[in-house]
Simulated assay, not measured.
Amino acid sequence: MRNLDVTTLRSFVAVAELGGVTRAAGVLNLTQSAVSMQLKRLEELLGVPLMDRSNRAIGLTAAGEQLLSYARRIVDLNDEVMARLTDQVFEGEIVLGVPHDIVYPAVPQVLQRFATQFPRMKVNLVTSFTRELKAQFRRGECDVILTTEAGLDIGGETLTTKPLKWIGAPGGSAWKQRPLRLAFGRFCIFRAGAIAALGEAGVDWEMAVETESDRTIEATVSADLAIHTMIEGTEPRHLEQIDHGGQLPDLTVQQINMYASDKGRKEVMRHLTDMLRQAFKMM
């Protein structure tokens, strides 16, 4: 009887999801050679090639794609069993602060995985602006925060760097109007840069909506009454990036940063931060 090794399957899943051995090795805290050896061992065990190495970017073969869904389930089931039977010391609450506009799509996936592995740990999700989240973190009110910033403070870690994009209603025409109608929060960190870019490009604009409610902004933009800016890949399904063909100025890039304080719960916090790190690298 041949048995699959969970550690090897975990490496296979990481390589498939992150798109390469180097990034997977960083997340798994292994050397590249160790991950490559595990992949080779898995292919030898199954007797089929799992990775398509014909291009510079590693892809999956048909057999690899078939194995991936099984491997995810096996790894998740293994983690759930271990958590259920050995999680007695992992009880309590972690407060996670995230800006509203980067909650999707990564954070719900992380919360689901974390709850499976640590069912007795409660994650209290707090959404606010970057400035307020950093203030709460300094006061010890949040254990982990994510931020959107142009730079990085001491003690932080940049998870990914993404460009800002103009966002509008699907198939909308609000971006063609002049003066250009904008919808922004009063404390939105992207607001000043967007206005400066419009000024440099000579695009007339007016503030159609100025609010503290992200839902109000989304409703206005989805009604094609104004446009907004968001980090690439974080726009909700009812909004889309505007294909303006150069009629709107390019925007700056933003860093998604993470700041964490273990407060004596190093192991469980390490798991949560690893999950966040992996999820945002996949964006």
Rank of each mutant, 00 (worst) to 15 (best):
D5E: 10
V6H: 06
R10C: 02
R10D: 08
E17Q: 02
L18S: 13
G20S: 01
R23Y: 04
G26H: 08
L30H: 14
S33V: 10
Q38E: 06
L39T: 09
E44C: 13
L45I: 00
G47Y: 04
D52V: 08
A63V: 04
N78A: 14
D79F: 13
M82W: 05
A83S: 09
L85E: 02
G92E: 06
I102N: 11
P105T: 03
Q112P: 08
F114S: 10
Q117A: 15
T130S: 01
E132T: 12
L133M: 08
K134F: 06
K134I: 03
A135E: 14
E141W: 07
T147Q: 12
E149R: 13
L152Y: 12
L159R: 05
T160S: 00
T160A: 11
K162D: 14
G168W: 01
P179Y: 09
R181P: 05
A194N: 07
A196E: 13
A196Q: 08
G199W: 07
E200C: 09
A208I: 05
V209P: 08
E210L: 04
E212P: 10
D214W: 04
R215Y: 04
T216Q: 08
T216C: 01
A219M: 01
A219H: 00
T220S: 09
A223D: 11
D224V: 13
Q241P: 06
I242G: 09
D243Y: 02
G246E: 09
L248R: 11
P249D: 03
T252G: 06
Q254H: 02
Y259H: 07
K263E: 07
G264C: 15
K266N: 01
V268Q: 10
R270C: 07
R270G: 15
H271S: 03
A279Y: 09
F280G: 14
